Amino acid sequence: MTRTAVILQHDPSIHLGNIGPVLVEHGYDLRIVDVTTEDVAAIDPAEADLVVVLGGEMGAYQTDEFPFLDREKDLLRARIGAQRPTLGVCLGAQLMAGALGERVYKGETMQIGYRRVEATDAGAESPIRHFDGVPVVEWHGDTFELPKEATLLASSSDYSNEAFAIGDFALAVQFHPEVTDEMHETWVSDGYNELDEHAIDPDAMRRDREVYSAAMQEASRRAFSEWLDGLPA
């Protein structure tokens, strides 16, 4: 049986990555929506079997500059209220928190590179356990307050809210487990100004990729496969 996954994408270089093949293996037909040009308000919040909200360079609070963010939050609020399967990655996680009325804001540090996340007790019983102690790609300086409906699943040294779940139907991760080697190289190559600003050596990031990427790819495949298998019918 074919199911539909609507993918809300903010930038063509910040795409599904390694999550895409997992969705296809689980029988999902993928509909990519460029939220910068398509009308998110026209999407029925409850219709798709799954909605995935990807990352982006803007902040979830920059709604004056990027008005489509408010429409995304409206969709997410309705979808989560209907308990329909939803996955948020980085900006997507922040938009989920914002849709539920929580504050999203600029944090005290910029995280760029492979960092470890540690599962909470609840996370150790969830698909997020596959990332426990595995260095994963981080590329963000924003954070959010945990929604009251949510269960915290993972934290990092800089930010306490790295992953959360809402019931068995919604999952949000602040980090970027979807990043393939090709995506990572694009981000590093295109992000030289930002890397210079934070005194980060792009070649050191490439060396880290050689060391850490394979384990993250496997953790991502296992985690999202398990999560999809556990979604309510």
Rank of each mutant, 00 (worst) to 15 (best):
V6M: 07
I7H: 04
L8P: 09
H10V: 02
P12T: 04
P12G: 00
I14A: 13
H15Q: 04
H15S: 06
L16D: 14
L16E: 11
G17E: 02
G17C: 07
N18A: 09
N18L: 00
N18M: 03
I19Q: 14
I19M: 15
P21I: 03
P21V: 03
V22N: 12
L23W: 09
E25D: 13
H26N: 08
H26M: 05
H26L: 03
G27C: 04
G27T: 06
Y28F: 13
Y28W: 02
L30A: 08
V33G: 09
T36G: 06
T36Q: 13
T36S: 11
T37I: 08
E38Q: 14
E38S: 12
E38C: 09
V40G: 12
A42I: 00
A42E: 01
I43Y: 15
I43C: 07
P45F: 11
P45R: 09
P45Q: 11
A46V: 10
E47Y: 10
E47N: 07
A48W: 15
A48M: 13
A48H: 15
D49M: 12
V52A: 12
V53S: 11
V53T: 15
G56Y: 07
G56W: 05
E57V: 00
E57G: 00
M58A: 02
M58T: 06
Y61F: 10
Y61M: 05
Y61Q: 03
Q62I: 00
T63E: 01
T63D: 02
T63F: 06
T63K: 05
E65T: 01
E65N: 00
E65Q: 02
F66L: 07
F66I: 07
F68Y: 14
F68H: 12
F68C: 02
L69M: 04
L69K: 03
D70G: 13
R71W: 02
R71F: 02
R71V: 08
K73A: 02
K73N: 06
D74Y: 12
L75H: 12
L75Q: 05
L76W: 14
R77C: 14
A78S: 10
R79I: 04
R79C: 09
